[in-house]
Design a binder for these strands. Sequence first.
DNA 1: TAGGCCATCTGGTCCT
DNA 2: AGGACCAGATGGCCTA
Length: 241
Amino acid sequence: MPAPLETCLSDLDCASSNSSSDLSSFLTDEEDCARLQPLASTSGLSVPARRSAPTISNVPGVPDEEQERRRRRGRARVRSEALLHSLRRSRRVKANDRERNRMHNLNAALDALRSVLPSFPDDTKLTKIETLRFAYNYIWALAETLRLADQGLPGGGARERLLPPQCAPCLPGPPSPASDAESWGSGTAASPCGTVASPLSDPSSPSASEDFTYGPGDPLFSFPGLPKDLLHTTPCFIPYH
DNA sequence: TAGGCCATCTGGTCCT
DNA sequence: AGGACCAGATGGCCTA
């Protein structure tokens, strides 16, 4: 929704010379109003009715015509600056609105992602970055489970044992102690993803790299039906700052 | 009170 | 030209 004209003009620098922030401060004759109407209408602004021109005392020694020309030039410049500023302001307000909407959509998508991830027993809401890291690991773990199942390796029964994502509680225990997290390079116990130096590589062979700094006790690191030793090598490729 | 997380605003850049 | 996307700045709220 476009901001009202008053809002658009409220912070005009050039409006400071006028006591009013109303655009009508700059409109002094029918000609001006007529010229500004189409411009303003395209930007959703409204041009108020003209107001009478201010009374200006004569400057001695300068012809009346020249004084009038100067006054008109000055008013025209102020008007154009004000309109330009208000148009820019109007576009900014619209851009802000779109950006807000875009971020809301992004958050809705994150909420949708949270809803299909295993949830904590105490219903702790994952932060944005935790959600992304957790989702990454969860997908990797599921894929690895299917791979093991297809190979008939230990943990292969996990395909059948896997619970639906919403089947909380499936994440064991509180976050690991700080010492545990630190030993794995995590920033904090509650933020289990550590610094990742490697670019995304083949997720099927993550355990070889020392750069994957996840700890076995991390709550975002455990999934139902998966062998522990497998999960302990789950990578997090999302950089942690 | 410091730090983390978040929402919002903003200007720049890229794309259609 | 206008919209989408992005990153930096800022301020509010919450928690340890």
